[in-house]
Design a binder for these strands. Structure first.
Length: 485
DNA sequence: TTTTGAGTTGTTCGA
DNA sequence: GTCGAACAACTCAAA
């Protein structure tokens, strides 16, 4: 019996349940490995993610001894066709809980079934699949902390026991035209060339980074994770996004560190993994929250800015020219590397929503375009959390002050100077308030850097007024009606 | 059904 | 300069 593994968001060999199942089905004989370049997903991916994908597929192809099959087209055509050409009995893949991916898999399964080929899904990008952790009445959580407690109580599985050295792969390249097809598709994958600074690619790079982080910054992660000037976060988000490492692997490895911990670092890191799982669960339960606010009043009633001035400010934000150095450093880091430190993501997003009064959806789309770790569930819900329309009842007066955040979390100004060369001559924390620097010091050097495009304090007050003007929710109305009787 | 406790990440103001 | 309170009220989860 022969099997095919269809790779998607799981570009790794270790701890891969679908691969383990495929190898088992083939009685440890060779397995066919396939990746389908889906034009629908390609169109929705920014240039940085396409470049990451191109390099990742090249690396995976190396891991498979050059035997990865890469084809372009609709999966519901390509997967059944490839299975037929290779005489495959059973196709294996991990589960996908995304809106598009779920529908795609149903279509592929249907087509395969028509051809008499089975389709088995095992594993997913998450330690605990969306929908598994529920409240006692079976409904889904909307608040993180109770979700986290229930998620912990549920527990997570051990990594899939699989040794890449035991695997063998069906060689599809007996026909030399298939070999050239792989090279052609890889080349075609990134038609838009962007200059972006990416870390090492692939499964081994992910494991190396994790080992480095685990034995280093993890202990002080509780506090240092907020410091964008330090290399103190795991930077694993991109590998998790592409499945080059699995959260289950991290959690298993984390156990002994949790037990022996003298700091809150390991526990804080586990909570971050759980945030990713929480947002995936929220999205699976509320598919429309990709585009719509969970609190719909923010789409229908919140006053937002529009017109020429709003467009100018939007562009300034995108390009890192708002005149607020901490914000601009983040946006420039995003374009230069396809990544932004989490603390700065919050500050730039808060500036966008509560300083410029623009709709969170536009900012989220700009992030998704550039982010190499771009994940709809985490990105859209992170933005909604900042905007105040998301899954927790954060008080609406919680508005980040970009200067204070910079002074607090980039205390020496190193992060700002790294990304804003115009300010490189300003010493220490003074880079966070260039308008305060006397002309004599560095007036010439900072002449190229813009003045603040808004008065943050004034716009903070404006944001508070607009939030206060939101209509009451239905429940609030009912409560008010009851109390009047 | 009702009640109770709690909710990632902040800022400002005044003592 | 430091520190605590105020900022509003609501919704969620669980007992």
């Amino acid at each position: 019996m022969s099997s095919l593994l269809w790779f998607r968001r799981d570009l790794r060999l270790r701890d891969n349940p679908a691969l383990a199942a495929a190898a088992d089905f083939a009685c440890n004989g060779p397995v066919a490995g396939l990746f389908v370049i889906d034009p629908a997903l390609e169109a929705a991916s920014g240039p940085v993610r396409l470049e990451w994908l191109r390099r990742s597929l090249a690396e995976l192809n190396n891991q498979l001894g050059g035997r990865l099959i890469i084809r372009r087209g609709s999966p519901s055509e390509v997967v059944p066709n490839t299975a037929r050409e290779l005489g495959i009995n059973q196709v294996f893949a991990s589960r996908d809980f995304g809106n598009y991916g779920h529908q795609r898999d149903l279509a592929v399964a249907g087509k395969l079934e028509q051809n008499g080929v089975g389709f088995t899904q095992a594993g997913s990008p998450y330690a605990v699949d969306p929908g598994i952790v529920t409240k006692d009445d079976g409904t889904r959580y909307l608040v993180y902390t109770p979700f986290y407690k229930a998620w912990l109580a549920h527990g997570y599985p051990a990594p899939a026991d699989i040794d890449p050295a035991d695997l063998s792969w069906i060689d599809p390249h007996a026909d030399s035209s298939l070999r050239s097809e792989v090279a052609k598709e890889l080349k075609q994958l990134t038609s838009t060339v962007v200059e972006v600074d990416l870390p090492a690619i692939g499964e081994q790079a992910a494991l190396d980074r994790w080992a480095w982080f685990r034995d280093g910054p993890l202990a002080e992660y509780g506090d240092d994770r907020n410091r964008p000037d330090l290399d103190a976060t795991s930077n694993l988000s991109v590998y998790l996004r592409w499945g080059q490492i699995h959260p289950r692997t991290l959690l298993a490895d984390l156990t002994e560190h949790l037990e022996s911990a003298t700091t809150k670092g390991p526990e804080t890191f586990r909570k971050e993994i759980a945030w990713r799982e929480f947002y995936a669960d929220v999205l699976a339960a509320n598919p429309s929250s990709i585009r719509k606010s969970l609190d719909r009043r923010y789409d229908t009633s919140l006053q937002i800015n529009w017109g020429p001035t709003a467009e100018t400010q939007f562009t300034a934000w995108c390009e890192g020219r708002t005149g607020y150095p901490f914000v601009d450093a983040g946006m420039r880091q995003l374009r230069a590397t396809g990544w932004m430190h989490n603390r700065v993501r919050m500050v730039t997003a808060s500036f966008f929503v509560k300083g410029l009064h623009l709709p969170w959806q536009r900012g989220a789309a700009e992030f998704m375009y550039w982010l190499r770790d771009g994940d709809s569930a985490s990105n859209q819900h992170g933005w909604q959390w900042v905007a105040g329309c998301g899954t927790d009842a954060a008080p609406f007066y919680r508005i980040f002050n970009p200067v204070l955040q910079g002074l607090k979390f980039d205390p020496d100004g190193d992060y700002v100077r790294r990304w804003i060369p115009e300010l490189a001559s300003l010493p220490g924390a003074s880079v966070h308030e260039p308008w305060k620097v006397a002309e004599t010091l560095a007036g010439q050097a900072i002449a190229d850097y813009p003045s603040p495009i808004i008065d943050h304090l004034a716009e903070r007050g404006e944001a508070l007024a607009r939030f206060a003007a939101l209509p009451k929710t239905d429940k609030q109305d009912k409560k008010g009606a009851r109390s009047k009787k």
